[in-house]
């Protein structure tokens, strides 16, 4: 049984950091919230809905390596019913304008991560799940991630993020150990 006795309620505008050692179940918990795994008992509702609109930036990001930056973002924007006119602005915001026509396979790990950040800037989902968003990101990028999260929180989004020391915003902590909840720090 994973995550027995996990009772967590969160509201819009709240940032929750999920921390714990490798293999403790941080990503699995995000997968549960995203509805990617059904191996759990109990109930998961967000704003009274069992299948809410969620933006999940997983570790693998989910973009095609063979498509360029702009095509990848336009595709996701179309599927998520986001206004396409904001795509180029989001690319500019994360500093990828010069490489927007490059396929992702030609970009560095940090640049690929910034493509995910462009989606964070673009999307208006009320629930955001970020799995290690600071990975491979430089100093400016760390500031950018914090700014983007802060903006989304101000817009009322609920954000779950797996642990990283670069998070500079006030947050609650959900501590996991071996798929068990250890501490929920208010």
């Amino acid at each position: 049984m994973l995550f027995s006795d996990l009772n967590l309620s969160a509201k819009g505008g709240e940032l929750i950091k999920i921390e714990g050692p490798n293999g403790s179940g941080k990503t699995t918990l995000l997968n549960v919230i995203a509805g990617l795994t059904r191996r759990y008992e109990g109930e998961l509702t967000i704003s009274g809905r069992t299948a809410p609109n969620i933006l999940y930036l997983s570790h693998a990001l989910g973009f095609s390596e063979r498509l360029n930056v702009i095509d990848n973002l336009r595709f996701i924007a179309k599927l998520r019913h986001i206004d396409l006119s904001g795509v180029e602005r989001a690319i500019d915001r994360v500093g990828l304008t010069l490489v927007e026509h490059q396929p992702l396979k030609n970009l560095s790990a940090g640049q690929r991560r910034r493509v995910g950040l462009a989606l964070l800037a673009l999307d208006k989902a009320p629930v955001i799940l970020l799995d290690e968003p600071f990975t491979a990101i430089d100093k400016d990028g760390v500031q950018l991630v914090n700014t983007l999260i802060s903006e989304r929180l101000e817009q009322g989004a609920m954000v779950f993020i797996t642990h990283h020391q670069d998070l500079m915003l006030p947050h609650r902590v959900l501590s996991l150990s071996d798929y068990q909840v250890e501490v929920i720090d208010e």
């Binding site: 509805g35 693998a60 990001l61 989910g62």
Partner: peptide, 17 residues
């Protein structure tokens, strides 16, 4: 296979479609 490797499938599964 490629979608699984790149993580696109989980991304597609979080859509309303």
């Amino acid at each position: 296979g490629d979608d699984m490797k790149e993580g696109s499938l989980p991304q597609l599964m979080t859509l309303s479609l």
